[in-house]
Design a protein around this nucleic acid. Sequence first.
DNA 1: TAATTTTACTTAATGGATTAAGTTGCGGAC
DNA 2: GTCCGCAACTTAATCCATTAAGTAAAATTA
Lengths: 339, 339
Amino acid sequence: MVSMKDIARECGVSVAAVSKALSGQPDISEATREKIKQAASSMGYQPNSAAKVLRTHRSNNIGVLFVDEAHNGLTNEFFALLLDRFKHVADSKGYDITFINRGISSGSMGNMNYLAHARYRAFDGVLIACMDFHNPEVIELAQSNIPLVTIDYSFENRMSVGSDNVSGIRDLVLYCAKMGHKKIAYIHDDNDSAVTRDRVGSFKDTMESLGLSVPESYLPVAEYRKTEGSRKATEKLLALDDRPTCILYPDDFSALGGIAAIKEAGLEIPKDISIVGYDGIRVGRHLTPSLTTLRQPTELIGETAAQKLISLIENPVETRIEKVIVKGRIYEGGSVARI
Amino acid sequence: MVSMKDIARECGVSVAAVSKALSGQPDISEATREKIKQAASSMGYQPNSAAKVLRTHRSNNIGVLFVDEAHNGLTNEFFALLLDRFKHVADSKGYDITFINRGISSGSMGNMNYLAHARYRAFDGVLIACMDFHNPEVIELAQSNIPLVTIDYSFENRMSVGSDNVSGIRDLVLYCAKMGHKKIAYIHDDNDSAVTRDRVGSFKDTMESLGLSVPESYLPVAEYRKTEGSRKATEKLLALDDRPTCILYPDDFSALGGIAAIKEAGLEIPKDISIVGYDGIRVGRHLTPSLTTLRQPTELIGETAAQKLISLIENPVETRIEKVIVKGRIYEGGSVARI
DNA sequence: TAATTTTACTTAATGGATTAAGTTGCGGAC
DNA sequence: GTCCGCAACTTAATCCATTAAGTAAAATTA
């Protein structure tokens, strides 16, 4: 490997001069700079990030924390798309992306936790998405001094980007009501998160403002993004004496589980029962009938998260901590009947 | 940040002793080792990867080259799942994963190419998937001395993991023939790759072995994984005087494009025309009828790639260069009619 | 007991780049 | 002619961990 030392020898200057010439510092004459650049290029010089990081404490590397146990991270279309756009913006600004995990061993002290890993790699910033935000290790990371952006969850005094769950659920409920539905159920997770609180709250509020009642049985619990749970929750709803005419699912994967249960019960969508998803993933568009859902501006969320995080990294003082909220839009498929 | 220096001062030993104690070297007494470990842990010591990489030239970091322009990388379910499994194995063996891109600037010399980026970050190894393998930069990377595994493409003298396209296409054709089809079309890309050659070759060979003829018009061209192209190719096939009774698509996304064209033509699957996909992505299972396809053992490909690459990194001499080929299995959906 | 081996360290060089502080030579001001 | 200021460098310290080579003391052997 050619280093600055080699170039310096070749050009008869000091290593410092080479460093300055290549990094565009002003106190190097144009002639010398040209000579150094020429030599660097002809000798096949490649910078060494380790040396740079060691000296400057800047890695131009962003850590991404995506849970991947149970295939819940990358293979989730929503998060894959989010990461794709995030990566795109990061790339264009000269940042790499490395996944944060728990597999790196810290010598004798067992495996590193998330924060230790982030420090070990000297990440300039961290993106957290698709996680259990109550995990102590995640909280530890969030309370560190590393620039941080979270998706769909907000820590105190930290940047976050999320979708507007309140308006999302409201819009969906209003749409269903407009289509004539009065008996609407909402399946949700019982985890303690703002997403759940916002959505359930919005659901109840909107229903109330429409003068529609929501029996407790219309709010069954199922883990997010698990088809199995939503399938069972759907079966419960279908078994009710006073069955709802429309079921809202908390995400499109859950809706897939619901569809399976409905088909199994010998019912037809939307003739016998209407359903609505949330997220707007690709598969929904190819179903028959296609799934009415709230399409999240996933690309925008990913891009915004990257911009905010990089701004936080590069201008820590001027950058204002924000809780960015972006609105989604209803995709009107064919899964809600007019009654 | 606490460094070994701080621990050394605290314990009254040299930095070298600390390094040895923490990395488990034998020539440190148990008493001293214990003391150092205690101090390290109570002082909150965190190793510094930059220093380690600088000194040892080992980064415990694997570069992953996934094209992402046109959302073709991460958001492709096949590759997302592949990467997910790859990452899982890499994690468990203590390797991080960083995306290789072209966004990192090398000071005055423009942006780094893939190889330069890999050297810059000192990746111990590289995974290449989902790429244009004829790209000069990719070839340059493949010809470097960095341990490398490619997916679904094989460079001379380099490790690769791929699915068995020959048996895959053959199995599908045999299945269709068994269902009574004689007029079978295959849409394919006209790029110059082993995947295409193997598949088209296998298609023609299998058809010939069955005594079935394949007119040129039954082999229309469309770019892989693009619904738009396959839609047009399908329209062409449907417009033929002697229309095929069954269309094979090169991947499930292409099949989605075909389905759109077929619906638009007012035809019904599988009553009027049968279709077959390739890959076995999730959406296919939720279509009505569900898509008959060749399900690739994506998880296995990802895991194998990781194991092979890490073996290549850790035992460069003993590890034999292999072209691993794994077989897929037909998923029998409802998109092929018995005629 | 003297010689040898082992144990448990220390010393010092090294990897590659950055940067504050210092030095030299030159042109211009007075 | 002298002094000042500036351009264009060089020097040297620094970031942190690793490791070959060296050393002193303790343990073993003859």
